[in-house]
Simulated assay, not measured.
Amino acid sequence: MHPWRQVPPQHGRTVVVTGAGGGLGLETARALAGAGARVVMAVRSVERGERAAADLRDLPGQVEVRLLDVADLGSVRAFARRLVDDGVRPDVLVNNAGVMATPFGRSPDGVELQLATNHLGHFVLANLLLPHLRDRVVVVSSNAHRAGRLELDDLDWTRRGYSPMGAYAQSKLCNLLFLAELQRRLTVAGSTLRATGAHPGSTHTAITSQTGNRVATAVGAFGHRLVGMPAWQGALPVLFAATMDVPGNSYLGPHRLGGMQGWPVPVGRSQAAGDPALARALWERSEELSGVGFGAA
Rank of each mutant, 00 (worst) to 15 (best):
G201S: 03
M165P: 00
A198P: 07
G148N: 06
T208G: 08
R185T: 03
A180Q: 14
T211M: 08
P200Y: 06
A221G: 10
V219S: 06
R146K: 13
E151A: 14
P164H: 11
A169P: 01
H204Y: 08
L150Q: 10
R136T: 02
T192I: 04
A216F: 02
L179F: 05
A180N: 14
V139M: 09
L150W: 08
T187W: 04
R146L: 10
F178M: 14
T203I: 02
L130M: 14
P131Q: 03
T203H: 02
T187L: 12
M165V: 06
A195Q: 08
V219R: 06
R185E: 03
H132W: 04
L130S: 03
M165K: 00
G161C: 01
S141E: 06
A180Y: 13
A221T: 14
S141I: 04
H204W: 05
M165T: 04
A189W: 07
T205C: 06
Y162G: 02
G220P: 09
G197A: 15
L150P: 05
T158S: 14
S171M: 02
T187Q: 14
T205P: 07
R214D: 10
A218C: 04
L179A: 15
S142N: 03
D153V: 01
W157M: 07
S171V: 02
D156V: 09
L152C: 07
T203Q: 01
L177M: 02
A147T: 05
A144E: 08
C174H: 07
N213S: 15
H204F: 07
R214V: 13
L173P: 06
A198I: 10
L129Q: 09
F222V: 09
H199D: 00
T158V: 14
Q210Y: 14
P200H: 09
A169S: 15
D153S: 03
L155M: 11
N127I: 04
Q170V: 07
R146Y: 12
S141A: 15
E181F: 10
V219C: 05
A167V: 03
G190R: 08
L133I: 02
S191I: 11
T196P: 09
L129C: 11
V219D: 04
V188N: 05
I207S: 05
V188H: 11
M165S: 04
A218R: 14
N127G: 05
H224A: 13
T203S: 07
R184D: 06
A221K: 12
L186H: 01
V139D: 01
Q210K: 11
R160S: 15
A126Q: 06
N213Y: 03
A189E: 13
